[in-house]
Design a protein around this nucleic acid. Sequence first.
DNA 1: TGATAGTTGTGTAC
DNA 2: GTACACAACTATCA
Length: 565
Amino acid sequence: MEKKKRSLMWFRKGLRLHDNPALLQACEGARNVYPVFVLDPWFLAPDPSAPSPGSRLVGVNRIRFLLESLQDLDTSLRNCGSRLLLIHGSPISIIPHLLTKWQIDELCFEHDTEPYAQERDAQIKKLAGMAGVDVYSPVSHTLYNPPDVIAKNGGKAPLTYQSFCRLVGKPPPPLNDPPAKIPGPAADLNNVDITAVVPSLEDLGYTDLNEQEFTPHRGGETEALKRLEDSLADTKWVCEFEKPKGNPTAFIKPATTVLSPYLKFGCLSSRLFYARVQDVYAKGKKNSKPPVSLEGQLLWREFFYTAGYGTPNFDRMVGNPICKQIPWKDDDKLLSAWRDARTGHPWIDAAMVQLRKWGWMHHLARHAVACYLTRGDLFVYWEKGRDVFDRLLIDSDWAINNGNWLWLSASAFFSQYHRIYSPITFGKKYDPEGHYVRHFLPVLKDMPKQYIYEPWSAPIEVQKKAKCIIGVDYPRPLVDHTVANKECRERMGAAYALHKEVGGLPQQEQVDALHRRLDETLNNHIATNETTKKVPKTTMRKTVGTTKGKDTPSSKRQRKLTDYK
DNA sequence: TGATAGTTGTGTAC
DNA sequence: GTACACAACTATCA
């Protein structure tokens, strides 16, 4: 009889038993399966200097969501006769160590297309190969395998959603059943230091968190499957779902499924989600279609995964061949005001509070705040906003987050930069009473509804009665939207025009030329405007920022403009 | 090479 | 609530 193998199932994402081909392979003909999760301080160690609780890279809400998911995974594994083996450290040193310590024959983990993971996994595969360990790394995080889609499209990622959808066929179905029994690890772990239980936030060093309002969303596969079935129970709702018709200010009962964090961590398989949506469609008479339908949302995920995989430097402006080179402002004051919900535009600030406290907000709220930070009002680098989202969202996903910031900043995929979300009327359209703003910005809870989206316009008597003096209890608006968005559109127009002109140059030269020429163009524009137009009183703050660090010609010129203002 | 359509804008008029 | 102007871009496909 053939000797039974010892396998190591390395969990990273894919924190589930259902539709998990790597786990199934690990169990196949195994004497021992070692289910491992590495608690990496790079992501988990507290950073007291971070702008909100959490590590340098991850907010405390997502860390907690992860810990809950691990707890649930451990419980499920124990129900199958196994357990989760948690180890503190860096995967790149720990995994190869374990392969030797436990005399592993086969290493199994879900394929991951993110650049960070690609680099890490390539090293691990190399080391495993040198140790004579087989590696099995199937695609199960996404419906499709990005390189397959790219190959089908002649070697490059499709840049429009429609062309992507035409390209891909029906996705593969999920695997039938999760394993009922999993061979346990050997009793003797050969002195490997295993963490006895899933740590709490306190165990990881997060203290004084009592005041922090946590996300209402609980992590884990069990919760994911329950939420999936709850969401899909309403056939009519599923069949009629159209994303743009959702209400971004609905927070007691959000307008979407809120399954994204479970997809992010792989607590829920996208293939199962897709298949179950098809089941529901089959029960209904007719259903909405991509891009707005529920099915369409899953395909957006695939679209951005493919673009992210097929585009060099997808997460940057410079060196990214599909990204418009735009001379955004590197202005920490504007950025931190936006990040810390101090823009003075209640709709924007309320959404940013929801992001910090819940780690989640509706897709359209994300649109609104991203547009505001970049091409709509503040003209700050999209990468800066991306970093804030990346840290705070519980569903933060490299490809989707970068893809959406490229989209919203009109840097790639989308170019209708004249379409700008108003920080005043967009929220008001959905929630004229201002319930959402009052909930997330209690300082404005007594502001009459006619002023709730523009509290600076309330007479001082009204502000006193509402116990909210603008400029004291709540900030004045950072910019006058009418003025700021006009200037932003001018900047975008100039950048687009120059882009056409210098598009053929190598990227760095392109960027230099753009910055140079845009400075000149804008100086003329703004100087002309300043002499012909009276800026409304509410402009108050500078809408032209300064460049940090080195005294570039550009920053000098910008400062001069600011002084002039 | 020209036509077309594109996740998800706002303000105004009727 | 629907239609249109606003001012206008570009990947894709015939």
